[in-house]
Amino acid sequence: MTREEMQQLAVNSQAGSTKAFELLVVELQPLIFRLAFRLLCSEDDAKDAVQETFIRVWQRLNRYNPQYLFSTWVYKIAVNLCYDRLRAAKQLPKRENCSVASWEENISLQSDAEAALINRELGEYIAHFTAGLTPKQKLVFTLRDVQGFGAEEVEKITGLSPEKIKSNLYLARKYIREKIVRI
């Protein structure tokens, strides 16, 4: 889908077209899922985040300015949502979502056990290197280094100043490098 087509669909969605919105959901949900998974390290949490993101997008469509890129706006909503979840997770005692018991339950419920296994391993792998980062550091690191967004785009998505992005990225990289050395 080209940028112009996406913008047109966004305008149609603003006018109330659910069909246009569905096309946007189909186009953008894998991208949002990937980002949410890398931030939350869990398939279920990532799927919840995707669903909530698109519901918020629909509710706030009247605030969207078609001068800006629709995908960036959706990313911004998704990132805010994931950031809130990361902060909430930091305040709560550590969940044992990666425990063997819950993992076995998940396998029995999920149809695609192989995909679930891959996701679980990947989630654990990411969490191992990023668990000690603050939500802001994790956000900036994931967007800049893992997702490969440019500095300007990260600025637009997170709403952080260039200085804050730089400092958070520096600290995140430093922490991960130290973590690699310790292995």
Binding site: F33, E43, Q51, I55
Partner: peptide
């Protein structure tokens, strides 16, 4: 990450929307 059953998620989103 493997995105399993995206159609189900789309349906669920559209139902809510």
């Amino acid at each position: 990450p493997q995105f399993s059953d995206p159609e189900a998620l789309t349906r669920s989103i559209m139902l809510s929307v």
